[in-house]
Amino acid sequence: MRMHNVRRALLVLLPLLLLLATGRAALAADPADLQLQAPQEATLGEQVTVTAVLRDASGTPIVGAPVILWSPAQFLSTGGAVQLGKVATNARGEATFRYEARTEESVVLNASFSGDSRYSAAQASAQMAVQGSAQLYQSSAGVRVPGVSVWLLVGLLGGVWGTYLAVMVLLTLIAREGAKAPSRAGGQHG
């Protein structure tokens, strides 16, 4: 129950906040323009570069502004935004993110700049189709040493038990010899 509420609250709150920020900035600050460049397609697990470019109204890059990359997601019963990174823009106004697609089918990527004292907030979004369904995470433990397997144990035991068996065969030979020999050999033992 609580998680559902939280998710709903987040879904309502997030756009509201953005709206509020934009509205306020429109009154007081210069408008900022954010553009998100992302590949249209990617394979599952592929590292792609996503670039957000932040400029002012005149097309001049805004330098050193923090840009957040996020994506809406759903896991178990929790839904909401997953923050994928936070990068400050460089001299060309670019914030570059490395993104690895882990979710199948399509991903919506959002970049947002929350505005500062001079510029208003800005947002951009891009859609990326993700292909493939291969397992990406594989846990590995131990190491396979060639030759070390259950057969080694079988061979070892087989050797020992084979000798036991051979000794048993010797015993039967002794028994046969005893049957052939004249019985009561006059106490010649040892």
Partner: peptide, 17 residues
């Protein structure tokens, strides 16, 4: 005693075993 008679062959077999 598996028919032990102490013959030379039996002794030999036993010593091998």
């Amino acid at each position: 005693s598996v028919g032990w008679q102490g013959t030379a062959r039996q002794k030999k077999l036993l010593s091998i075993a």
